Simulated assay, not measured.
Amino acid sequence: MTLRREAFLDQVRERGAYGTTEEAERAARVVLALLGAHLVGEVRAQLAARLPETYALILLNPLRSAEPLTPERFVRAAAAWIEGATERTAAWDVGAVLSTVAEAAGADLLDQILLQLPTGYDLLFGHPRPS
């Protein structure tokens, strides 16, 4: 089931403890654009189908990534794109957005997403896996 845009942003806003919906929106756009660059094929399409249309389009037309970023570099890249962000605040932004994405995806799809990503992303999604 696809989340409504307002419901998705409300979850991101609550998890990120943002003062405004605009802050949640900015974080969601950057993090989903970065995530979309790391996912391919059916997994990306399935995830897009579970997100509000605005965010599905961002996921499907991502920033281009030459190589998969480690979780640390993913956070650093988010910090570079989010106005006024530091690595610490970007880690918070990434966690707020990706934990909301994980919930929208569901356990089976999240497992498939994590298979396409470098080790350590389970923590960014708020779903640590036993190593």
Score class of each variant (00 low, 15 high):
Arg73Val: 13
Leu9Ile: 11
Gln112Arg: 15
Gly19Ile: 07
Glu14Phe: 08
Phe125Pro: 05
Ala17Phe: 13
Ala45Arg: 13
Gly41Tyr: 09
Asp108Gly: 09
Val43Leu: 02
Phe125Glu: 00
Asp108Val: 13
Pro52Tyr: 07
Val94Gly: 00
Gly36Pro: 03
Leu47Tyr: 01
Tyr121Gly: 03
Arg88Asp: 15
Val94His: 00
Gly106Tyr: 04
Arg50Trp: 08
Pro128Asp: 09
Thr70Tyr: 05
Gly41Trp: 06
Leu35Ile: 10
Glu14Asn: 06
Gln11Leu: 14
Leu35Val: 07
Arg29Gln: 13
His38Asn: 04
Trp92Cys: 05
Arg76Tyr: 14
Thr54Tyr: 05
Gln112Phe: 04
Ala107Val: 14
Tyr18Met: 08
Gly84Ala: 01
Pro118Ser: 05
Val30Gly: 02
Arg129Pro: 00
Ala45Leu: 12
Asp122Cys: 04
Glu42Asp: 15
Ala102Leu: 07
Glu14Gly: 01
Pro130Gly: 05
Arg26Trp: 02
Pro52Lys: 12
Gly19Leu: 11
Leu35Lys: 03
Arg26Thr: 15
Ala78Asp: 08
Asp122Val: 02
Leu51Ser: 10
Gly120Asn: 09
Asn61Lys: 12
Ala24Gln: 03
Gly106Pro: 05
Ala96Ile: 05
Gln116Asn: 09
Pro128Lys: 02
Arg73Ala: 15
Met1His: 11
Leu57Gln: 13
Gln11Glu: 13
Thr70Ile: 03
Ala80Arg: 15
Ala96His: 06
Leu51Cys: 11
Leu47His: 09
Thr70Arg: 10
Gly19His: 08
Arg4Pro: 08
Val43Arg: 00
Leu32Cys: 11
His38Tyr: 00
Pro118Met: 06
Ala105Arg: 05
Pro52Cys: 10
Gly41Leu: 06
Glu83Gly: 14
Leu110Asn: 03
Pro52Thr: 11
Thr20Met: 06
Gly106Phe: 08
Glu53Asn: 12
Gly95Ser: 12
Leu35Tyr: 06
